[in-house]
Design a protein around this nucleic acid. Structure first.
Length: 814
RNA sequence: GCGGACGUGGCGGAAUUGGCAGACGCGAUAGACUUAGGAUCUAUUGGGCGAAAGUCCGUGGGGGUUCAAGUCCCCCCGUCCGCACCA
């Protein structure tokens, strides 16, 4: 049979049609097979399928197919099946501002999706216009409201002038919006909704220990730092105006060395303590910090003219304002102990505030006042500290905290860096927050039976920063569900990270219209065995979804406390030296690659570019080679199909090719089982194909048949369409993913003889062949008998010979 | 500034446990087939010297351990990532 040219479009469309109703990836709910659950998340904030997606999909998809072929029951959610994509939503999507990309990209994704037949992640842009998603987001919100986990408060919030919306702390990167890294966020005071993630801060931190081993250390470290727990003491200094100012310190044992109290420039007490000029100066400090000049902000401050009394020593110390004191951490005020804190040291040195050492090293002397060059920040023995002198720092901290609590001027306290999660967004799109503001009844939740609260279709997108919903009377004017009086609907919508926090649970029970999902269905699948996503979500999505899981557990919906036992973080795709992202405009869309070379090439190429955990530098030149390789495979298959079907016979190179074949199966199996270095897996398949080409004329029909068969199975996880086509060329029927993963015969894979490297003084001189297991002495004498070795050794004295059986002989001469 | 990762041909990368450096692919060069080739197939491809056999050098730089180092240890340089006044 003559070979056929490789027409990827024809092949891919053909099998795509056939797989449409095959429910290949759908979970088999009643299966008794072991579970294996693969989920992915979006690596890039973008609506269109681009290289990052392909990489993400390809990794997860290859693994899922492999697991399937190994007999696992795989939940491999496909597209947005969990929520559907009803036609009427197009109208909503259409309402978005022009800078949003949803509508055209939903169309693009449908097309690409069709061609690729894989796509199974949550997509922020799609989920933001799903009524079913709204319903269950709102359902969760109301459950949290009932439990006091959702609340509303007036707060200073991060505001991105480009997005015209509030951002959570997690979404602020280097003082800029996570989507616009050239736009500094500003602070605004607004009435906002929050989720009380801090209530779970302790558990989120403690449970990190359970994730150890399954999650990358890097991500766990980032989460630990982000939660930022520190144990210390809150202490009231009494101001000369009569009121207390509360400070937080982790080193109350140093308090006798406190030589001033410093307030954050935006501290509430400043209104009272400062005069006009002082307030203006404080405001200037706040502004300077918000604009956040790159480079170090110098420590600055000024004296308020007021004093406060140290409750332990009774000493009166000056009260200052300092730009390095943060309102958002601890109490927004500190006691400065310059002798034992580097920042305080710098500040007090600059302004001539006394530096008084009160802690000495355990086996050293107390530093002398005025002679310290740097702060001594370690624990030690307390000195010049009244009744506490002589105690260790640890003991002092404990006992002094107890005293503060006993006498009512403070207490032991734990402070977290993490803050409650602000979920209010002043956007049109996104899930409406399901509450109603009634003048008589206050904040009234929308009753469950009225969910979902949907977005109105008739909206002007102004981009002014005021929620566009506020200008739609038919949306805002409602009756209070409690008293029936006139009331106003909440116009903020939810952060879309809300959606992503639980979307994967819905995959287990996508049609449920009574609950987000049935607990027993989730119980079968969860926790996720393997989650795959980009590292950039370490403190966003990955911490929110852990929080959500714990809340769901406490509500009684799930039994697991963590969403995923293993996390794999794929590397980012770099283009022109920068992370590929929509906002940078350096996104390479998949369409080009897919149109030109097809889905199989696109996937294979991105996997071949490098190991999945590493960043890849995007350049398309290599795609040609991968396409060429698939063409080689296809042409080999078609021109040998007849021979393969006939089978039988004997060929000169059968042994050689079968050995390589079984070695390749072994190698790829090992790659899947240990590390996912698919680039080397694919390289091994290429080597196999190169040998098939070289030995093609010297093979029996039976060997050709086995080669094509195994080659198809090996390619199935990486290039499913071509693999399926090969399968059918062999006359086999049925979906390839129902086939078992190929096994290898260790006997066939074994080399006949060991190739032993012979070195002289560590330098390669020749190689010899010997039967496996040849004794050391025999190898040594065989090596020494070799002509090349003889000429190297001639005239010199053999000092030593190192023999590694089956591998190497090293002759040391002098 | 602190913490982490990394540094290999013209390029992407391989070398999994200290044991043949450069697998596989791109690019390049030559040839075959061809009216033609941006298709396909074959061969060569780290650098120096050499007609060749061969030989020396070579994994950011310097030092060390070892029979043997891309791999382990120390110092330096560079790149990337994370954190950056967290009291």
């Amino acid at each position: 049979m003559p070979e056929k040219p490789y027409d990827h479009k024809e092949i891919e469309l053909k099998w795509y049609e056939q797989w449409q109703d095959a429910t290949l990836y759908k979970a088999e709910e009643n299966s008794s097979l072991p579970k294996y659950y693969v989920l992915e998340m979006l690596p890039y904030p973008s609506g269109t399928l681009h290289i990052g997606h392909i990489r993400n999909y390809s990794i997860g998809d290859a693994l899922a197919r492999y697991k399937w072929m190994r007999g696992f029951n795989v939940l491999h959610p496909m597209g947005w099946d969990a929520f559907g994509l009803p036609a009427e939503n197009a109208a909503i999507a259409n309402k978005r501002p022009p800078r949003d990309w949803t509508l055209q990209n939903i169309a693009a994704m449908k097309q690409t999706h069709r061609r690729f037949a894989f796509s199974y992640d949550w997509d922020r842009e799609v989920s933001t216009c799903e009524p079913e998603y709204y319903r269950w987001n709102q359902w969760f919100f109301l459950r949290m409201l009932e439990r006091g986990l959702a609340y509303r408060k007036h707060a200073m919030v991060n505001w991105c002038p480009k997005c015209c919306t509030v951002l959570a702390n997690e979404q602020v990167v280097d003082g800029c919006c996570w989507r616009h890294d050239d736009t500094p966020v500003i602070q605004r005071a607004l009435e906002q909704w929050f989720l009380r993630i801090t209530q779970y801060a302790d558990e989120l931190l403690a449970a990190i220990a359970d994730l150890e081993g399954g999650w990358p250390e890097r991500v766990l470290t980032m989460q630990r730092n982000w939660i930022g727990r520190s144990e210390g003491t809150e202490v009231d200094f009494r101001l000369d105006t009569g009121e207390p100012v509360r400070v937080f310190t982790t080193r109350v044992d140093t308090i006798y060395g406190a030589t001033c109290v410093i307030l954050a420039p935006e501290h509430p007490l400043n209104a009272k303590l400062l005069d006009e000029a002082g307030r203006a100066e404080a405001k200037a400090m706040v502004d300077a910090r918000a604009n956040r000049d790159p480079g170090d902000i110098l420590k600055e401050g000024f004296f308020t003219g007021h004093y406060a009394v140290n409750p332990y020593s009774g000493e009166k110390v000056p009260v200052w304002i300092g730009n390095f004191v943060l309102l958002g951490y601890g109490t927004g005020a500190i006691m400065a102990v310059p002798a034992h804190d580097e920042r305080d040291f710098e500040f007090c040195t600059k302004y001539g505030i006394p530096i008084r050492p009160v802690i000495r090293p355990v086996d050293g002397e107390l530093a002398r006042e005025g002679e310290m060059k740097t702060a001594f920040t370690e624990y030690g023995i307390m000195e010049n500290s009244g009744e506490w002198s002589g105690l260790t720092s640890e003991e002092g901290r404990r006992r002094m905290s107890e005293k503060a609590e006993r006498e009512g001027f403070g207490k032991a306290a734990i402070t977290y860096r993490i803050k409650d999660w602000g979920i209010s967004r002043q956007r049109y799109w996104g899930t409406p927050i399901p509450v109603i503001h009634c003048e008589k009844c206050g904040v009234v939740p929308v009753p469950d039976e009225q969910l979902p609260v949907l977005l109105p279709l008739d909206v002007d997108i102004t981009g002014t920063g005021r929620s566009p919903l506020a200008d739609v009377p038919e949306f805002t004017n409602v009756k209070c569900p409690r008293c029936g009086g006139a009331a106003r609907r909440e116009t903020d919508t939810m952060d879309t990270f809300m959606d992503s926090s639980w979307y994967f649970y819905r995959y287990c029970d996508p049609k449920n219209d009574r609950m987000p999902f049935a607990p027993e269905k989730v119980a079968y699948w969860f926790p996720i065995d393997q989650y795959i996503g980009g590292v950039e979500h370490a403190i966003l999505h990955l911490i929110y979804s852990r929080f959500f899981t714990k809340v769901m557990r406490d509500i009684g919906l799930v039994k697991n406390s963590e969403p995923a036992t293993r996390l794999f973080t794929q590397g980012m795709v770099i283009a022109e030296g920068a992370k590929m992202s929509k906002s940078k405009g350096n996104v390479v869309a998949a369409d080009m690659l897919a149109d030109q070379y097809g889905a199989d090439t696109a996937r294979l190429f991105i996997l071949f570019a490098g190991p999945p955990e590493k960043e890849v530098d995007w350049r398309t030149e290599g795609a040609e080679g991968v396409y060429r390789f698939l063409g080689r495979v296809y042409r080999f298959t078609t021109r040998n199909a007849d021979r393969a079907r006939a089978g039988g016979g004997e060929g000169e190179s059968d042994r050689k090719v079968l050995r390589k074949l079984h070695q390749t199966v072994r190698k790829i199996t090992e790659d899947f089982e240990s590390r996912w270095h698919f680039n080397t897996s694919i390289a091994a398949i290429m080597e196999l194909v190169n040998i098939l080409y070289a030995e093609e004329a010297k093979l029996s029909g039976a060997t050709v048949c086995e080669s094509i068969e195994k080659l198809a199975l090996l390619l199935a996880p990486f290039a499913p369409y071509l693999a399926q086509e090969m399968w059918s060329e062999l006359g086999r029927t049925g979906p390839l993913f129902r086939q078992a993963w190929p096994s290898f015969d260790p006997e066939l894979a074994r080399e006949d003889e060991a190739e032993v490297v012979v070195q002289v003084n560590g330098k390669l001189r020749t190689r010899i062949f010997a039967a496996f297991g040849t004794a050391k002495e025999a190898l040594e004498s065989q090596a020494l008998a070799d002509d090349k070795v003889k000429s190297q050794v001639a005239g010199k004295q053999v000092v030593k010979v190192i023999v590694v059986p089956d591998k190497l002989v090293n002759i040391v001469v002098r």
